[in-house]
Design a binder for these strands. Structure first.
Lengths: 204, 204, 204, 204
DNA sequence: GATGAATGAGCCTTCATTCAT
DNA sequence: AATGAATGAAGGCTCATTCAT
């Protein structure tokens, strides 16, 4: 704590403590993601980390606090915003695939935390707020970008919230169901061009 | 059980037993959906049903068996198949909106069971198989219909699995996030026509 | 429960359950009195009663609820009131010794509960209210009786609250410190006659 | 320690250590008196004293040892003896009120330690011996003084142990129940003169 | 068919104490 | 002298499940 406020060089013990803290958080991430938070016992955590049960309470106030610490350290809302907040003057035909692929990759990298979020999404725990925030931000950012491209004349006028959700939800479900990334170009193509045949498309 | 196999007239006792069984299943549906299966105790169930705890074990082997019975009775895979397996010779421009709306309505009607599925989807329990089955069947049926419409020349050739999933997942997420049905036409329209502007659409 | 509301004959099981409840309360009385409530574990109680730990929670909501049940069943406020509310027209020279002896005997009989009260008196628990009530009632009753005897001319005018407390506290402390009952007559005699020598007593 | 035995000039370090020791004892007195010994954790003590938990074990063998140290430093048996061992040749009519008032004041000043004694009096700990010692000494001293006054002819012959306890216990309970000092003269008056009316008193 | 008393394993958390630094 | 990380043994309580009635 002090070490961060005053820019004093941290002692070896402080470093060790911080390492232990990280270790416990990572153990939490692994076990929570594997078995769910509710099905992970303090015993599991302690055994898996190779420490006594009591030590966990030296670093975290409760089992729930550990969960929050896991989310805080491994959270990825900033990355989601970066991924979904693309340059507004680049064409959607380029950007959307990049967005889809970046999101797909991000979700895969953060798969353990995503699993935790999905599992705990219903518990009404504080944690859920961050998750919903994340979902709403993502949809909003992409939707605004699409609206900008409509204004720029690249895209036809339409409800961009709907199209944004089509992309996000489908990518997310692809990831959750383990579908490979190779379908992403087809997904973006379908979103851009629709599925109607050429004759009908011209008529519309 | 016997009463249904052999078409013998069921005794009054058998009728009462069947009614009890149904009552317990419905109580299970309500409580599991409200608080989650893991957070529902046998005591809760018994109290809510107005019976003794022991009686539940007279009708079901375990708490998990009750969950399976709930899923079995209130499952809706047939309905999903019916909804998603439309007449192959009707045009997608008519059918897809019907499908989207029917699915939206079905998910709303079956909301309690859906909630259970979503919550328990991760537990690796037997139950999950049914859920995945349902998802796969749904996507497959719709995908095959779309392929038929491609063959019929109504839709352009494309990966119909992807487009089928775009529809299903987006409708499902709409339902889960509480979005109203009024967006469904725009969803279908976007899927059919894409979001590109007319000039680019012609270029493509 | 029903058995008490409707005057139906209780079944054997109900009787057994009531017996078990009493047994647990008596076990609680014994252990709480011996080691104190805080130092008595659920394990102790269960082992001493020869039942599983969980059973205690079948009969009582919590360890504290068991304590309250003990107090409720073995409480003795009514008896205290009876002992300390003597016939107002009998002379103090007879009554006070009877009161002292009755109180001494009562405290000895109820020694286990008294010990519990004394130990828990400081915890600010709900329980304490009953105890204080008891003390206040006792002092008040006796004080009023003494005032009546002053009016009757038997006792000289004085602060009867003080003299009531002198009797009660001294008897109580005698009991707590294990002093035998044989000192009680001397106690009452001293209270009635004071300790001044005859000459000074006449001067006063 | 050495510093006190050998009258060598204590080093700065020794002085600091002694100060620390006193600080910890005073912290112990405050917390033990406020929340009780059993409900005070080492963590509480360390936090309240602004030191690390481990340091407490540098100065005291155990939590119980700290309690004993508190009692040792803040004990007041000598003062009690002084208060209760009055000049044997002064009349009780003067002395007893002084004794009652001095005891009342002493108990109020030492209230924190008294609270500790009262709370821990039942635990069968070593500590209790000191407490009982104190009680016995007090009663004995006062009793002997009263006996001397009997011999001197000021007081009538009676069991002076009983009258001594009447005074002590009542004063103590007055203090514990928060009664104000203004009742003390009436208490002493009642003890000296009894509560019988003049006619009966003469008859006796 | 129905009851609810009884079980026993397990959960989260607390805390006095030790010890390497 | 001082720190605080680490331990390990309980402690109160919950709950799915069994079984005698």
């Amino acid at each position: 704590m002090k070490a961060r406020v005053q820019s004093r060089r941290p002692t070896r013990r402080e470093l060790q403590a911080e390492a232990r803290r990280r270790q416990l958080i990572d153990t939490g991430l692994a076990l929570f993601s594997e078995k769910g938070w509710e099905n992970t016992t303090i015993r599991d955590l302690a055994k898996s980390a190779g420490v006594a049960q009591g030590l966990i309470y030296h670093y975290f106030e409760s089992k729930e606090a550990l969960l929050m610490a896991v989310v805080e350290r491994h959270g990825f809302l900033p990355e989601v915003c970066r991924v979904l907040g693309p340059a507004y003057d680049r064409p959607a035909s380029e950007v959307l695939l990049e967005v889809a692929q970046a999101l797909h990759r991000l979700l895969r990298e953060k798969a353990p935390l995503v699993r935790i979020f999905v599992r705990e999404a219903h518990t009404g725990r504080e944690l859920v707020k961050g998750w919903n925030e994340l979902l709403r931000h993502g949809a909003k950012h992409l939707s605004q970008y699409l609206a900008a491209r409509v204004s720029a004349g690249e895209l036809r006028p339409h409800n961009t919230e709907v199209s944004a959700r089509m992309l996000l939800h489908t990518v997310a479900m692809f990831q959750l169901s383990g579908a490979p990334a190779k379908y992403l170009p087809e997904l973006v193509d379908t979103l851009l061009n629709g599925i109607k045949g050429p004759r009908e498309a011209k008529d519309a």
